[in-house]
């Protein structure tokens, strides 16, 4: 390994450039592996993931390519019982392959820090703690320009219980089992759980937060794309965990105001609840009769989601 010929260096260089192109291409493909980018945070997360995919592809193909070459071309002959060369190590090489991953890791951590700081999903981070991360040690770190310095404009209370979502809007004071949000405005949710751990997860927004009983967690993000998306419970919450899903509707601020106004005129009704419905169904053919935690009564809200969106 110490005396590499020009030929070898050239070959390695060409292979590395080829790998780099494949890796960059994979990084671009990565964007298509996600649901639609429906929030400003999603744009940031997808960027970061694309970078990680490119880097990961390079490392993976580098290692696997080398192994494949060995397996194809460096097998012992059937009657060749001699050993390979007695090479115990190479200090230079070992320093290089310790240092490069170390630098890469700091780079990834710094970049991730920057993205997380911009997302500010738990509100702005307390920057007094910043000195504890590796991020500050790198010149890459500029004071992150917050993407969204606008104050949260829409404040909604989210109530999770076994196994229902319920949303409370302040102005006018209405309730729903389907989350409606105005587009392109900073949203602040106050997450409440009334029994066990739950998780607020909207894949199209790329954001998630566990909901802890006994705590209220303020959680922020900014939707940027109108449409109907899925909201799922992401922290295992017991028997009907998988059924605890509903829809998020992102609409223009005007449509959102219109929805609030109309809904305020609606009398509260009992919403459809999948868990409650299944539990009450007498003829469950696959039931074992194990005693389980009873689902809470279905929420009574001004705007119930249709049972179609909660199949």
């Amino acid at each position: 390994m110490s005396s590499m010929s020009k030929q070898t260096i050239l070959t390695l260089g060409i292979v590395a450039i080829g790998l780099a192109f494949i890796s960059l291409w994979m990084g671009q493909q990565a964007y298509s592996w996600f649901p639609p980018q429906a929030s400003a945070e999603a744009v940031l997360v997808d960027q970061l993931f694309s970078f990680l995919v490119a880097l990961g592809t390079f490392i993976f193909l580098g290692v696997v390519g080398t192994l494949t070459y060995s397996v194809l071309f460096q097998q012992a002959g059937k009657y060749d019982f001699s050993d390979g060369p007695h090479i115990e190590g190479n200090v230079t090489l070992e320093i290089v392959w310790t240092a490069i991953p170390f630098v890469l890791v700091i780079w990834i951590a710094a970049y991730s820090y920057q993205i997380y700081d911009q997302m500010s999903i738990l509100g702005p981070m307390e920057h007094v703690h910043r000195g504890m991360t590796t991020a500050e040690a790198t010149p890459l770190m500029k004071p992150a320009a917050p993407l969204f310095d606008q104050k949260p404009v829409e404040h909604i209370d989210v109530y999770a219980r076994q196994w229902a979502w319920e949303f409370h809007y302040p102005q006018p004071a209405i309730t729903s089992t389907e989350l409606h949000l105005p587009n392109r405005q900073r949203i602040q949710l106050a997450l409440h759980s009334e029994d066990v751990l739950h998780g607020f997860f909207v894949p199209a927004f790329r954001v998630k937060q566990d909901i802890i009983p006994g705590q209220v967690i303020e959680f922020e993000f900014t939707p940027i794309r109108e449409g109907r998306y899925r909201l799922r419970d992401s922290q295992y919450s017991g028997t009907y965990f998988a059924a605890m899903q509903t829809d998020v509707v992102v609409e223009s601020p005007e449509a959102y105001q219109q929805w609030l106004t109309t809904t305020a005129t609606q009398p509260p009704v009992i919403a459809y609840n999948r868990a409650f419905d299944e539990y009450q169904r007498a003829h469950n053919p696959i039931s074992t009769g194990w005693k389980i935690v009873e689902p809470a009564s279905p929420p009574i809200v001004n705007y119930p989601s249709s049972s179609v969106s909660n199949p």
């Binding site: 990680l52 991730s112 998630k208 992401s234 295992y236």
Partner: peptide, 21 residues
């Protein structure tokens, strides 16, 4: 090695927030 690559991805907080659980 494949698991190591996805492991580094998971260590990155913003990405983990999306794929956690």
């Amino acid at each position: 090695v494949f698991a190591g690559v996805t492991g580094i991805m998971l260590a990155s907080v913003p990405f983990d927030i999306h794929v956690n659980n």
